[in-house]
């Protein structure tokens, strides 16, 4: 459906210019994501399967992972293998990530088998796929900064792969400080922004209709959604 209202007359055109860049940005935001699209309290009736809850479960576990990571950050890297409380928070962080990847993969399978990229939703799929790849990178740098035998060993293994394609010259997995920064600043930032973009795209395009679904007839439709003027 067309997003823009048709311009009618000079008065409307002038009103449209009001507010400079800020006004234009607001109009764009409201046009692309009006409040009822951003926070709808109804969903299409075909959205009736447990598979739909795995998106929100993924976001929830991401939030738990970030929150437990923030608690680890409070005391810093000297803490999590040296105190019992630190170790428990470290365990929380690990298991939230296991759950995050678990739910994300099920979400991914679901969306694949629903061909959820149909109807101008390719960007939603692509941002989701990049989210998955970014999560693998974030989890990997997390494994590198655990400060245990496993992180020691996988850093030694991973350096060969990264060096072989020239990345290792800049992205040095044996440098704990660099990996910690990537893990707690750069990658979470990228993942957070991608996730926000992904979720906003879902809200903007709405839930993908079933494969080969035909929109109900107009009279049926007006009975269904009696909101349009």
């Amino acid at each position: 459906m067309s997003d823009s209202a048709s311009p009618s007359g000079n008065a409307t055109r002038d009103a449209k210019r009001v507010g400079g860049w800020t006004g234009a940005a607001r109009r764009y935001a409201v046009r692309t994501l009006p409040p009822e699209k951003l926070l709808p309290d109804t969903q299409p009736a075909y959205m009736a399967s447990w598979i739909y809850v795995f998106g929100v479960l993924t976001v929830s576990s991401l939030i738990v992972a970030v929150a437990t990571g923030c608690v680890l950050a409070l005391e810093g890297p000297g803490w999590w293998h040296a105190s019992s409380v630190g170790k428990y928070v470290n365990s929380l962080h690990l298991w939230s990530v296991e759950l995050f990847m678990f739910f994300m993969v099920i979400h991914l399978w679901g969306k694949f088998f629903m061909a959820a990229w149909r109807g101008r939703r390719a960007m939603t799929w692509m941002t989701g796929a990049v989210c998955f790849l970014a999560s693998v990178g974030t989890a990997f740098t997390g494994y590198l900064v655990q400060q245990n035998f496993d992180s020691q060993w996988i850093s030694g293994q991973a350096k060969d792969g990264l060096n072989a394609v020239g990345i290792g010259a800049w992205f040095n997995v044996l440098d704990f400080g660099q990996m910690l920064m990537w893990h707690i600043v750069l990658l979470p930032l990228v993942l957070g922004l991608l996730t926000a973009w992904h979720v906003l795209l879902v809200r903007r395009r709405g839930i993908v209709p079933p494969i080969d679904a035909l929109a109900p007839e107009p009279d049926e439709q007006s009975a269904a959604t009696a909101v349009q003027p």
């Binding site: 009736a45 009736a48 399967s49 447990w50 598979i51 795995f54 678990f102 099920i106 679901g110």
Partner: peptide, 25 residues
């Protein structure tokens, strides 16, 4: 075990009936 649980949960999510919402339309 983790991968098996993922497959199991996926199959369950697809097969189990989703509770019907009240007051449709």
């Amino acid at each position: 075990v983790v991968i098996g649980l993922m497959v199991l949960v996926f199959v369950a999510a697809v097969l189990l009936p989703f509770p019907k919402g009240r007051g449709r339309r």
